[in-house]
Amino acid sequence: MELKLTLNGRTVADHIEPGLLLIDFLRSHGCFSVKRGCETSNCGLCTVLMDGRPVLSCSMLAARAAGHSIMTLEGLQEEAADFAGFIADQGADQCGFCNPGFVMNTIALLREIPDPTDDEIRAFLAGNLCRCSGYDGQLRGIRRYLDSKKADASPEKGGIHGA
């Protein structure tokens, strides 16, 4: 079947098998950030944004994305880099295999709740598994990022720096 969608801001049209999963479509179109960690919608590694909302690309047919806008980490490098350095400063990237899904969902979180509490962060990202870090370093990184943004917004209070 023919599939036409917007991928990272560019129109993509391709002939696909009807059963093709979105993750496999994306990887075959050069979006190698999208990772498969399970096959059962349990790990969050394959998270991408469809029309701005996080979806699990391992459990969605590519055909369902027809006419929609899909963003992967390849298309959100700057938005990700804005906070990813704070995760790096914690050493919480670790093996990195869960990072793209985690980063994509964090982007969704920060768009939806610009100033989340720790519990809101935990709840929003609960579906993103990480076997290496124990999660706390990821939380600290996000928290430092939010603190640094507040410090930037009110320079008279002095800077609060990451790490």
Partner: peptide
């Protein structure tokens, strides 16, 4: 020192490394 991992940004930005 808590030095950042050398591959950290490659990993966090989803570069093709696996």
């Amino acid at each position: 020192k808590p030095v950042r991992k050398k591959d950290a940004m490659q990993l966090l930005l989803g570069k093709p490394v696996y």
